[in-house]
């Protein structure tokens, strides 16, 4: 199973689909998909951790708020994502530990994600695979 893929459908923005064998894994892969627009997350050192707790009114807004938190941490603390661990989703609440680095000057940053959007957002389960689809404004 692929972690994520870009549809290339939106010319001005970026649309991706992220997959997982659980909802948690699909959400975590969505975070990596978004990070991959801005930098090569594989190259980010797992130097620091941030524990996050996110709430939403529904699953879509939970996903939106989760991804937005990653943008927030980048703007305010220079936090670059390496991976997501210990992610739990229950009752439209999400807890996770973000692993990454704040030494932003050590990395090549190539693109910018301005914002997460609800445009054509989907969260689906087919057979045993969860899929989330997101368009981000870049």
């Amino acid at each position: 199973m692929k972690k994520f893929e870009f549809t290339g459908k939106k010319v001005a923005d970026a649309q991706f689909r992220a997959y997982g064998s659980s909802l948690e894994e699909a959400f975590a892969n969505a975070a990596l998909a978004m990070a991959s627009i801005m930098y090569d997350y594989v190259k980010i050192k797992p130097a620091e951790e941030r524990e996050i707790k996110i709430e939403g009114n529904d699953l879509q807004s939970l996903l939106y708020n989760f991804l937005e938190e990653i943008l927030f941490l980048l703007d305010t603390e220079n936090f670059l994502l390496h991976s997501v661990k210990e992610i739990k989703i229950k009752n439209n609440q999400l807890e996770a530990v973000l692993v990454g680095d704040t030494k932003i000057e050590n990395y090549e940053l190539f693109g910018q994600v301005k914002a997460v959007t609800y445009n054509e957002m989907k969260i689906e389960k087919e057979k045993d695979i969860y899929m989330v689809q997101v368009v981000v404004d870049i």
């Binding site: 870009f6 290339g8 459908k9 939106k10 010319v11 001005a12 970026a14 627009i37 693109g111 870049i138």
Partner: peptide, 9 residues
């Protein structure tokens, strides 16, 4: 100008 190709492409 408006884009005609996605950044990914």
């Amino acid at each position: 100008a408006g884009r005609v190709m996605s950044r990914h492409a």
